[in-house]
Design a protein around this nucleic acid. Sequence first.
DNA 1: CTTCTTTGACCTCTC
DNA 2: GGAGAGGTCAAAGAA
Length: 345
Amino acid sequence: MGTAPVCLDLMVGRPMDREPSLARCTGSRTEAGIASSACSRAPSMTNDEAKILEAKLTQVSEENRRLTEMIAYLYGNQAKILEAKLTQVSEENRRLTEMIAYLYGNQGQQPASTAGSPTPPAGRKRSRDSMDASHSCDVEISNRNVGTGEAEHVDVDSPLSNGTCRRIKVKKVCTRIDPSDTSLVVKDGYQWRKYGQKVTRDNPSPRAYFRCAFAPSCPVKKKVQRSAEDSSVVEATYEGEHNHPRPTRAGELPGCTTQGGGSVPCSISINSSGPTITLDLTKNGGGVQVLDAGEAQPDMKKVCREVASPEFQRALVEQMARELTGDQKFTDALAAAILRKLPDY
DNA sequence: CTTCTTTGACCTCTC
DNA sequence: GGAGAGGTCAAAGAA
Ligand SMILES: [Zn+2]
């Protein structure tokens, strides 16, 4: 989607334009009226009037300089806050990217904790082919808050306790849904066919069993069950990996198909060289992108959609405005400056 | 008619 | 080997 970048042009006052020397006749907007009137009326005014005006001008210039310093200071603070946040996000991004690279880079080469396990002992084993179709031991747990778009991922390597790693990728996703919704449908972009439902011992709500219906040969299954503690949360457990591309649907963001919630799907660029702060939320995060690899993509798509949405961008602008207007010193000085600039004050 | 869901029966596993 | 639980099958019904 080609949403225009969010550009917060905070041109409350450009320090470079606020040199007191400029406030004579070519001054910037705030003192232009006074300066120009002083210049144009100079020939016909008395010495006293000229002195009064000059004193006033000096006073205004001094206030202007102080205000400029204050604004510059505030800009500095805002830039620092944003830079700190950016650093934090980048660090998180890097960490998750490494995790994903590790997880997906080790599919043919298991992590040290699971590698080198001897040939599985010939213990009891299910005869059905449902257990041997996939290719890793990875267990991934994801908690997703659909209502807020928050997404938390915990990736865990989990070899089976008896050492019989059957290379099944298991992923658990917790999704918050409407408690009144009894359908147990978790929208993850894939097509599922329900093949069973069962009431389990430790949970009063039934567990539904789904198979991937997009490709007949796809081995992926998922189990969906409401959380025993919170009926508004459904836990979906995915087993196996899809052997086909994700079905694309209208409204999805191709640029945001980041696997495993690894990277923040937007870049934040701060142009601190001037007073214009630009937050570019349309670029991709530059993190690892693994297409056709799993079900965590809806998380990031959701985040992408929210970031790109007018609501999010408006909220961002409002937050920036709040940050500025929330500073008492800033608003006081601004109000005082405005009052002084008004005629007859 | 086709496709999907429901649901009871059956199978497998673990204790 | 039996019981209990989880997982799957497949017939029947619904859409
Ligand atoms: Zn599939």
